[in-house]
Design a protein around this nucleic acid. Structure first.
Lengths: 303, 303
DNA sequence: GCCACCGCACAACCACCGGTTGTGCGGTTA
DNA sequence: TAACCGCACAACCGGTGGTTGTGCGGTGGC
């Protein structure tokens, strides 16, 4: 591809060869090979050089696109000046939407989204410079952030109840946390010690809920299946969380109000990170349309 | 790249190897080579397979982009279902703007822009299927379109006068064609027999202008230089034509009115071409914002 | 807790890809 | 008409990239 673009720009295989520091014969063989693999002629050979055919003209911008993509790919892992690398807890959860929104607002800023194993790995990666920022609720109790790591409350996401169609609350427009006392809230896969566990522990304690974290996590699909077929099980889910096929299961999302529990997503970054896009991201969060904690909402005391 | 994406998707080099019909050792060597050339580790090897590192996660979408670009490039020259291929007479002239505008209106439609040697080559390419459409003024006298080729008047582009700052008309807001009688209109590079020659011949005859087509064509740069330094030379230029550096030369564009000569760009295509995007392009031209001939404009009788 | 198994890496080997030099041919130019 | 320019073909050869064979470490069953 590089040889093709060079030859198209130079107009002569000879000049392209000197540009690429190879012989003219090598360029000729490369172009011939490319033409053979594509099945079309890309150049018309003349006595004064080589001119693009119609196919070659159509191919050229795509070849340039490919070289640009290759350059971007190489730059994405080059230490030093590279795209902003942000860790989100899951591609279908609210932080991913925030990053998408940021990308729409600043299309020119290169952005790479990754997902680390847990909050500890995220903080370590932020400290080491492997990533530039992370959306993790690292404000949970017992966790002390290192001095060189900063965190701000980024945005609050309301928590909703998810039930099957046969659940007693399925047709309730909204419920209060108190009405959930005594009901079975089932949240398999919550790993003890993580920020999620701390949040739901506090939520349960505050309103007298009983949250079952028992049972192995078989993934979201079986969870939703079980939920859809049960008349007593319910689970909590973030308002912006996209489920795989909510309509197919007949699942219901029920708002929780008075007070509305919100999950405090926060942004973590390294104080010394000079990446200009990091400042833009923080500014975007500060001025964005994302709801911050308001009257009538509930968050854990440590938030 | 393909191996990297396959390994990332499969989560195991072994499975990726079977997908690619090579041995596990080959995949291992390919990944190792890619990692060496990039200078970073892309996978963490575990006993149960290989998981992406942070760098690998960041690299993956770029690798997918690259493969998509490669697929698009290959498709651009594959006979059969491919992007709409349109011939424009020059990337800086009005037809190119029309194509750009069409692309903005229909971002999903693949589009390849090429420039053929002359109108004859364009018609031949349209007949052979090498291109799907061409913006050429093939309505000139003496040229008979084949039966299987259709053409419509696509849009009219006003013709302007281009002069240096010392020209007597430099500060005129607009001129009539009659006022140009006797002045030197210099248009080198107009090849006799082409549609441009026919147009300006008719224009000269209609208003008694004297158009000099003498002199070799050294390209637009020397033309603009000569024009900028002359107090008697002027040339015609399309209203939408982008010049290389008009401000740097102090050149003036002067509208021509009462009547305003307009150049009749037309679209040529093959009657049997079933490409759906071709219909979209024709519809775009029919309903677009491009001025068609209006009262007070002049076109050749054959237009 | 031991052992079998699974998956990746390293070593040796080899075919072929892709580079080089040398040469021929067609077309343009003086 | 002859010299020149630029690309293609031929022969040659080194290195890349594939294969088979094997070792090693971590996981999971019994």
């Amino acid at each position: 591809m590089r040889t093709f673009v060079a030859a198209a720009d130079a107009g002569r295989f000879q000049d392209a060869a000197t540009d690429l520091s190879v012989t003219q014969q090598a360029v000729s063989k490369r172009i011939a090979g490319l033409e053979k693999s594509l099945g079309v002629r890309l150049f018309t050979r003349t006595a004064r050089g080589a001119k693009l055919t119609v196919d070659g003209q159509a191919f050229l911008p795509h070849a340039r696109d490919l070289l640009r993509a290759a350059a971007r790919a190489a730059a994405s892992v080059r230490p030093g000046r590279r795209a902003l690398r942000v860790d989100v807890i899951g591609r279908r959860l609210a932080p991913a939407d925030v990053v998408r929104d940021f990308h729409r607002a600043h299309p020119g800023i290169g952005l790479d989204v990754v997902t680390l194993f847990d909050a500890d790995a995220a903080v370590a990666a932020v400290r080491s410079g492997d990533i530039d920022a992370s959306f993790r609720a690292v404000t949970m109790p017992g966790r002390q952030l290192p001095d060189d790591v900063a965190a701000v409350r980024a945005f609050d996401e309301p928590v909703q109840l998810l039930t099957g169609p046969a659940h007693p609350l399925a047709d309730a427009g909204a419920v209060t946390p108190e009405r959930l006392a005594g009901r079975r809230i089932w949240m398999p896969g919550i790993v003890p010690g993580t920020e999620w566990a701390a949040y739901y522990d506090d939520l349960a304690a505050a309103f007298g809920l009983t949250i079952e974290v028992t049972g192995p996590d078989f993934g979201t699909e079986p969870l939703l299946d079980t939920l859809a077929g049960s008349d007593s099980l319910a689970t909590f889910v973030g308002e912006q969380t996209r489920l795989s096929a909510p309509a197919g299961h007949g699942l219901r999302r029920i708002a929780v109000r008075d007070p509305a529990p919100v999950y405090p997503h926060s942004l973590v970054w390294h104080r010394d990170n000079p990446h200009p896009a990091l400042a833009a991201l923080r500014e975007h969060l500060r001025c964005g349309r994302f709801a911050h904690s308001a009257p009538g909402t509930w968050t854990p005391a440590w938030a």
